[in-house]
């Protein structure tokens, strides 16, 4: 029975990954042309595209829960759904973090890899959604992110820059702090946990856990960058202090729930 369940989950995980690619292609082939033909300027188009991606990711997450690969536990997810003009920061334990988060966010902006931005299949969708390409200089990237926040976007950033390396201490890059200090918008911390760990860094999709994984998403109270550091610091120091403060904040949240910070 156990073995059967394992095989079922392996099969369904493979199917989920295929569905994800097919879904992306479907959006490019069907939703994208329709949205392009609909009335309204680029801003409306961007919102509609973000909504379509949100719905598509919702179907994907729903599928994974229904077939029994994962179980989703949400806490205060409404704060994510209503997020506007907010810098959403999350730790990054798995490959599906952004998918789960956007499935809860009708409007979201994110930074995507240049490879995705230029992809012949998905590039059009990603660009129409107004997502931000990381193929810019750091200054331009921070500026684009601040701009998106000022326009009322809910910008999702993983301050680690890549998935968490299991067994290593949480380490944040300074980009998120640069963005947070570049505007006065609040920070919304999202703490993600996955037990047993799966789809983590350096682990192929077929290396599935011994049982269905419990995925927990917990939206914490908003933070203000200015409250986390001393006032009147020069920029170079403010960015470093804020990065350290955010790192500690997340490490403590993760440790508080029985999952060691490292």
């Amino acid at each position: 029975m156990r073995k059967l369940n394992y095989l079922w989950r392996l099969l369904m995980t493979g199917l989920a990954f295929s569905l994800f690619s097919i879904g992306g292609l479907a959006i490019t082939l069907f939703a994208y042309p329709v949205i392009r033909l609909m009335p309204g300027g680029p801003a409306r188009r961007r919102q509609r595209m973000q909504w379509v991606i949100h719905k598509m990711f919702g179907v994907f997450v729903g599928f994974m829960c229904t077939v029994g690969i994962m179980r989703l536990h949400l806490n205060n997810a409404e704060a994510l759904a209503n997020a506007r003009g907010v810098l959403v920061l999350a730790n990054h334990p798995t490959l599906i973090d952004v998918v789960v988060m956007i499935s809860l966010m009708p409007r979201s902006d994110c930074v995507v890899k240049a490879a995705l931005w230029n992809s012949p299949f998905l590039g059009g969708v990603v660009r129409a959604a107004g997502y931000i390409s990381n193929a810019k200089s750091s200054e331009e990237l921070v500026e684009a992110c601040v701009g998106a926040l000022r326009q009322g976007g809910a910008l999702v950033i993983f301050p680690e820059g890549t998935r968490t390396r299991p067994g290593e201490p949480l380490r944040f890059l300074r980009g998120a702090a640069h963005i947070a200090l570049g505007c006065e918008q609040p920070i919304l911390p999202v703490v993600l946990r996955c037990d047993p760990p799966t789809l983590s860094k350096g682990r192929p999709w077929y290396d599935i856990p011994p049982r269905r994984f419990e995925y927990r998403l917990d939206v914490k109270s908003p933070l203000s960058a200015r409250d986390l550091i001393e006032p009147d610091l020069p920029d170079t120091l403010a960015v470093r202090r804020l990065t350290g403060a955010l790192e500690t904040h997340f490490a403590l949240e993760l440790a508080a729930h029985g999952q060691p910070a490292h």
Binding site: S137, S138, E139, R174, H178, D235, T236, V239
Partner: peptide, 8 residues
């Protein structure tokens, strides 16, 4: 240092 630091 990062490239933003380099500007500073």
């Amino acid at each position: 240092l990062d490239s933003i630091d380099a500007v500073d």
